[in-house]
Design a binder for these strands. Structure first.
Length: 425
RNA sequence: GUGAGCGUAGCUCAGUAGGUGGCAGCACCGGGUUGUGGCCUCGGAGGUCGUGGGUUCAAGUCCCAUCGCUCACCCCA
């Protein structure tokens, strides 16, 4: 019985890693343009942190967390809570009132795996802490859009406001009343949700429920003056930045800490997983976790989903692996020298490959082609005996003899210089 | 947690009324080229047909169980 990876946990093989690195590179570059700094937190946190931030009654906390049975410790299911914990713990706001932080790493949720959904998955997460202006919301959303654009991805952006502790609770009561009156027309799930999480009913995909919900009261129409102004200004700021979006008053969040602005980057190309990235404002969270009274906003994007989308929407060429030089040692007598020379080449900074088997030149050239070597140094027994080798340009197929004399570092240096000039067009 | 589909070579897959596992494609190794890659050509290696039972003279094929994977529901990035 072969041992295999556990369900929902996946290897990212070398052929796929190039794409991942590309996405991460673009993200780091763009986040830096917006003044974000990287932060890295532990994967394990006190269970309490997630219960208090994400919410006790949410699905994530209720049934999806990997929690150690006897330790009160949980593998993080998302990044925001950890970032806030670290932010508060180290008093980061004291040095710099507005913090822009991002982190990249694995998250864990015990869900049934399917396309675009794993138990260990990876997120890019960006947070702006300590700034409440609507323009900040727009700026953060624009950053997400910029990343998706530069990755060559086509997604749609949906926007909503979830109000605040002043305007949401009364709305929730109205909604519950409304839903209770139409109890009969709702699906089983939504009847349950009416009491556990009424806002979720707005997001149900069943035709029958959608029909009911169309007539439901809209939170956007009963936002308190502050929330209403905030939402209006976010929208105009987005328009000023040329960001295209649509309003979705049915959009809900699965995590309790969200307030006011929420948004999702959506695609139809990922099967059942529509959201490539999502986020929103969480103005009460930091205080709720025992920190200063600061507002915050952030988003997360799923790396697996970004990678899948890139594969599907656009076959952008990720730079293939390549080596500067392949050293082909012909016959076992030249292997020791070839090994030393390869090592010296690497010390000089060259990407150098070698085969120690002493097998046929044909086989070694084939391997040189496979590793995409720009040059091959053929160390033949006869040539080597008189202090020479043959340098083959794998693209032009032109060959020239090279002298092997002096200390091996010197040989490596002049050889590397030679191929660097020869490789230039 | 619920439902459906699928498990044959490293990968993608054939396998026809149960009758010896495929000249299959890609990849790998070697020959054709006594020391010259990609293309071509010839050959080679590689399998407990997911696992365990059962039916049968005979099971990759039929039956049962079990494990695994995939997709969808739910939920979410």
């Amino acid at each position: 019985m072969k041992i295999q990876a556990i369900n929902g946990f996946k290897d990212i093989l070398p052929e796929a890693v190039g794409r991942w690195q590309y996405i991460e590179r673009q993200a780091r570059d763009i986040f830096a343009r917006f003044g974000f700094q990287e932060i890295r937190m532990p994967i394990l946190e006190k269970t309490e942190l997630f219960v208090r931030s994400i919410g006790e009654a949410t699905d994530v906390v209720e049934k999806e967390m990997y929690t150690f049975a006897d330790k009160g410790i949980t593998m993080r299911p998302e990044a925001t809570a950890s970032v806030m914990r670290a932010f508060i713990e180290h008093g980061l706001h004291v040095q710099q009132p507005v913090q822009r932080l991002y982190t990249i790493g694995p998250m864990f949720r015990h869900e049934r795996p399917q396309k675009g959904r794993l138990r260990q998955f990876h997120q890019l997460d960006a947070e702006i802490i300590g700034a409440a202006e609507p323009r900040v919301d727009a700026e953060l959303i624009a950053m997400g859009q910029m990343l998706l654009d530069e990755l060559g991805l086509t997604v749609s952006l949906e926007l909503n406001s979830l109000g605040c502790p002043i305007c949401r609770p009364p709305f929730k009561e109205r909604l519950v009343l409304f839903l209770a009156e139409r109890h009969q027309a709702l699906c089983d799930d939504c009847r349950r949700r009416t009491h556990t999480n009424p806002l979720r009913v707005l997001d149900c995909k069943k035709e029958s429920c959608r029909a009911v919900v169309q007539e439901a009261p809209s939170l956007l129409e009963v936002l308190c003056p502050d929330c209403d102004r905030h939402f209006t200004e976010v929208r105009s700021a987005l328009e000023e930045l040329g960001i295209v979006f649509s309003i979705n008053r049915f959009m809900v969040r699965g995590l309790d800490y969200y307030t006011r602005t929420t948004f999702e980057f959506l695609t139809a190309d990922l099967g059942a997983q529509a959201a490539v990235g999502a986020g929103g404002r969480y103005d009460g969270l930091i205080e709720q976790l025992g920190g200063p009274s600061l507002s915050g906003i952030g988003f997360a994007m799923g790396l697996e989903r970004l990678a899948l989308l890139m594969e599907q929407q656009q076959n952008r060429l990720i730079p293939a692996k390549s080596m500067d030089i392949f050293v082909a040692a012909l016959g076992m007598t030249t292997v020791a020298f070839s090994g030393q020379l390869t090592h010296a080449l690497r010390q000089q900074g060259a990407k150098a490959a070698i085969d120690y088997s002493g097998r046929s030149l044909k086989a070694q050239l084939k391997q040189a082609g496979r590793v995409n070597a720009r040059f091959t140094l053929i160390v033949g027994e006869d040539e080597w005996a008189r202090g020479e080798a043959i340098l083959r340009d794998m693209q032009t197929q032109k060959q020239q003899p090279v002298l092997l004399s002096g200390p091996i570092e010197e040989q490596a240096r002049s050889l590397f210089a030679m191929i660097q000039t020869a490789a230039r067009p």
